[in-house]
Design a protein around this nucleic acid. Structure first.
Lengths: 192, 192
DNA sequence: AAAAATGATTGATGTATGTTAAGAGAGGGA
DNA sequence: TCCCTCTCTTAACATACATCAATCATTTTT
């Protein structure tokens, strides 16, 4: 059940069997059906979240009712709305499932206790954050320098799994493109 | 000399006098004159960097020769090009000083030894990274949802210090706007 | 199976923003 | 001090991309 997440942990730190048991005892499995919300604006993010299967998205809705996808999560750790998690302030984001999914949640108090009991986890999350930070910086760089077409090409090259599973309109939103524009970009790509 | 950085550390972890001495012994002060480079494309980022005074910028140059500012740093810790630092791959970025500045550098081998010798620093950097990650996510959200004018208004509200010290063309680039467009936006703001 | 919602595509049109070019101040370097 | 470079501004023009609207295919719900 915890294979994926423990493999991920093992890439960064080594746990004793006891530590492993302690860690997994904090993980609350939750199934999410497609379209089910994990978080809505005004909610407070009260747990860390690991995606074990399926696919989640984090998005904003602007005053015109338009959705803007800020983040996808697919079989990985992620922060949900880290701002809300850290500060305890209400979130501005929606998080929902694009497919039937399974996540593991860790309540915030237990999450903080974890670092006290097993300081190694400071290192684990430091490393995850480093990687997430690099990916984010890369995304910003691309948004600043590349036109829509190149951003899409890089996206499908970097995340071929997403291309299969995620509706194009969601990908367009993530890239900051209107779905109609992405459709035209794809049409243009076919012609050659 | 190390007041600023030690105050920053103390916000997250508590060091003994010996640990403090050890930590500061790793810090190599470097003065940068205005316009001086800290990193150029092809270089490998070989150290962590804390900005003690002044202001640095991290930017890309596209194939048309346009500069795109990815990051400012002003009296704070920052990562430089974390990708290059972590992987040892050549960087794609320029880093230079917008003002005469002073930075503290930590060589990568010593930086990694630091976590072994004083595991508390895992926590310190985990926390810094959490904050940096939140700020980055916020920036992406704004880029996705807001037009140029709102992004600028939010910027000067969020970073009033920057508005004073950083040339407008740099701010425009950071926001993903042409300097001429920012100029028009400002003119339009004056009229009301 | 029918109905309804969702997603993709296409065309016509609009607009925010980029591009090019020129001039005016301001500040730093010789 | 003078010059030169950098920065900001303004105007005319160009364009990538968004918006609006209609159609069709696909999937989900009843």
């Amino acid at each position: 059940m915890f294979d994926l997440i423990l493999k991920n942990v093992a890439r960064h730190i080594t746990l004793t069997p006891e530590e492993t048991d302690y860690f997994t005892s904090l993980l609350k499995p939750r199934k999410l059906r497609r379209r089910q919300y994990l978080l809505q604006p005004g909610d407070i993010m009260r747990h860390e979240c690991f995606v074990n299967s399926g696919c989640l998205r984090c998005y904003l809705v602007d005053e015109k009712g338009q959705e803007h996808v800020v983040h996808f999560a697919i079989e990985e750790w992620w922060t949900g709305d880290m701002y809300s998690f850290l500060t305890g302030q209400p979130s501005a984001y929606y998080i929902d499932a694009l497919e039937d999914s399974e996540v593991f949640l860790i309540d915030k108090p237990q999450f903080e206790q974890l670092f006290i009991d097993i300081p190694k986890f400071d290192r684990f999350f430091r490393r995850l954050l480093q990687n997430a930070y690099v990916a984010m910086q890369h995304r910003i760089s691309q948004n600043l320098t590349l036109p829509a077409r190149e951003r899409y090409l890089n996206f499908i090259q970097q995340y071929p799994q997403f291309e299969q599973r995620i509706p194009l309109r969601q990908i367009a939103s993530y890239l900051g493109i209107a779905p109609e524009s992405l459709s035209r970009i794809r049409k243009q790509m076919m012609r050659r």
